[in-house]
Design a protein around this nucleic acid. Sequence first.
DNA 1: CTTGATGCTCTAGTGACTAGAGGCCCTACA
DNA 2: TGTAGGGCCTCTAGTCACTAGAGCATCAAG
Lengths: 138, 138
Amino acid sequence: MFSIGQLSKATGVKVPTIRYYEEIGLLPQPGRNAGNQRRYGQDGMDALGFIKHARDLGFSLEDIKALMGLDGHLGDDCAEADRIARSQLANVRDRIRKLQQLASELERISHLCDGGNGGCCKVLTALGDHSQCAGEHG
Amino acid sequence: MFSIGQLSKATGVKVPTIRYYEEIGLLPQPGRNAGNQRRYGQDGMDALGFIKHARDLGFSLEDIKALMGLDGHLGDDCAEADRIARSQLANVRDRIRKLQQLASELERISHLCDGGNGGCCKVLTALGDHSQCAGEHG
DNA sequence: CTTGATGCTCTAGTGACTAGAGGCCCTACA
DNA sequence: TGTAGGGCCTCTAGTCACTAGAGCATCAAG
């Protein structure tokens, strides 16, 4: 039996966050001891570990809820899990692409200030004028 | 003189968002007509364009506030603008690196389901077990 | 038995908006 | 001049995924 603090330490999820997950129905309500404190078993630990890992991978709590509703013994559910994982991968790739465009424009803007001379503060001008951008972004 | 709707159309920033920017002190309060409706000049248009572009580049409203406080005629402010831009670039590069790690792990997880056969639904197992991960993430 | 850490509930705040209610105003057209 | 519709106004509350704090109860160690 684990206290909420032990669970927190073991998984790296903060105590109020664990309570929040319970509140929104993502984590099942654990039992309580005589003093009304939460007591978790290994299943609670596993569930929280799953959530933590999925959050680190960028899944929304919504997605995680969907993934946890299914537990792998139905073909349909399996397909659904795979679909969610793939859509998340596409999402991540898209974000990478956009961020790379941003990085190259930010690089360009930063270079305007390189000499520290009179050309300086084109940073602000560049930020105000999209037409100077090399490519698309946003 | 532009109405808030015209400003919105011209910049691509939604009307409630413009009012929100004004509320938090990011956009100066414009004049009003006899019927209490906002009327903007070219300066308002320019300011909003600046904000939009900087937002698209991933700057926080906090950063943008700092950038707008300075308007380019002081050496110190210029240095500050450059510092903010560079830190934003570092930030973006960091996010790219992390996302690339996530993408590769998601790819690995997705491949577990490739055959659609019995190996399927290791997706859920993989999500629950960080120790299977190739590298670090989070 | 005391002390300090940990736990409890509840409320409110974060960032950057978005949505809706309920009403006022402006413009174009008949 | 009247009216219909769209645009505009303020205000409140909701979103996501937490985070912070108040004020109190409980637990474990010495």
